[in-house]
């Protein structure tokens, strides 16, 4: 029997019905067609499915769809304001900080959460915060630089 869930995604009210076993990632991708979050592992080891729940960064693969009743979800689709990119998105482009781009949605969500919590992180703090976001293409160098640049720009 399906479970009815009312929630808010990227500021909009959303209702869906899901099975008890379904993860939030399954719901986002298969029921709501929000395919920005990716399934890289389904075990919380890669970060490609990163979202925020009530502002806190988490893996949507480690959350049941049923759990988000009344919560506020933030996904990569909500990071840009219309066609205006968030600084972290722009700096990822400017720094060539993506190659294949499949980890990028998770990187964007995680980096944004970091900069909201800590506007001036050290390189080491960035690296440890981002350790749960696997990137196999870049070796992380340009991603770290993009986050540093975005932090600097956001601090003004």
């Amino acid at each position: 029997m399906g479970i009815h869930v009312s929630t808010k995604i990227n500021g909009d009210d959303v209702e869906f019905v899901c099975d008890a076993e379904e993860t939030l990632l399954d719901v986002l991708r298969d029921r709501l067609n929000l395919t920005g979050a990716k399934e890289g592992c389904a075990t919380g080891d890669c970060g490609a499915c990163s979202v925020t729940i009530d502002g806190r960064l988490t893996c949507s693969c480690l959350t049941l769809g049923a759990e988000v009743e009344g919560r506020e979800i933030g996904t990569v689709e909500g990071v840009a304001k219309g066609n205006e990119l968030h600084p972290i998105q722009q700096k990822i482009l400017d720094n060539a900080a993506l190659q294949c781009g499949v980890c990028t949605p998770g990187i964007v969500v995680a980096a944004k959460a970091l900069l909201e919590k800590k506007p001036d992180p050290s390189e080491e703090e960035i690296r440890y915060w981002m350790a749960g976001n696997l990137c196999r293409c870049t070796g992380y160098d340009k991603i770290i630089r993009a986050i540093q640049d975005a932090a600097a720009e956001m601090r003004g």
Binding site: L57, C59, A131
Partner: peptide, 8 residues
Amino acid sequence: GSTQVQGR
């Protein structure tokens, strides 16, 4: 785990 895991 990761920052994400620590959120849960």
